[in-house]
């Protein structure tokens, strides 16, 4: 007769064996004195704990927890957990909610960056206009982009003639009108 391991008897007392395993163990301990003895001692000890008094917390414990919750909420706000939790309440999975937040953040940064670039571009154009106005005031013929004389200079320093700035249409009409 092969005996049951004591660890199996322990698991049986915790209802952790399958139905077949449990039946086999019960049949065995009904006939095997040594296994029955082990089972009986373990069962008695288990009963002592399961029938012992259960302890209850103080009735004021919840009030203390609630007060601490108010305090912690006032001092710190977990925005990430809150946003993810909020999106999840709409049935979004945790992964999708996190990706959505990341995408939102990235879009915000991109918009902010492109807006800043546009502002910088406009500022540069205004500066170029101001420089050109100063130059044309000194020598209108030399710096007038619409003057045929200016194109015949050997050293052409007119910036508006270069290919690089040929697309700056916003400022050119204003300059042209001034002349």
């Amino acid at each position: 007769m092969s005996h049951f391991k004591e660890a199996e008897i322990s698991a049986y007392l915790d209802h952790q064996l399958s139905a077949d395993e449990g039946c086999a163990l019960e049949a065995h301990i009904a006939e095997c004195e040594s296994c029955h003895s082990v089972y009986s001692e373990m069962r008695s000890m288990t009963r002592l704990f399961r029938e012992a008094e259960r302890f209850e917390p103080s009735p004021f414990l919840w009030s203390r927890i609630a007060a601490d919750l108010d305090e912690s909420k006032a001092s710190a706000f977990d925005w990430k957990a809150s946003l993810v939790g909020g999106l999840r309440s709409f049935g979004w999975s945790r992964g999708v909610a996190t990706v959505a937040l990341a995408a939102l953040l990235f879009s915000g940064i991109t918009i902010f960056h492109s807006r800043n670039s546009h502002i910088a571009e406009q500022a540069a154009m205004v500066e170029i206009d101001q420089v050109y106005q100063r130059l044309t005031a000194q020598d209108p013929d030399k710096y007038n982009p619409f003057s045929s004389a200016s194109s015949s200079h050997e050293t052409d320093i007119n910036p508006f003639r270069s290919f690089r700035l040929s697309h700056t249409t916003n400022s050119t009409p204003e300059i042209a009108r001034q002349h």
Binding site: I65, D68, L69, S72, D78, A81, V84, G85
Partner: peptide
């Protein structure tokens, strides 16, 4: 335990 649990319920 409950303070931690309730604060991290979103996770």
């Amino acid at each position: 335990t409950f303070l931690i649990a309730l604060n991290r319920l979103g996770t």
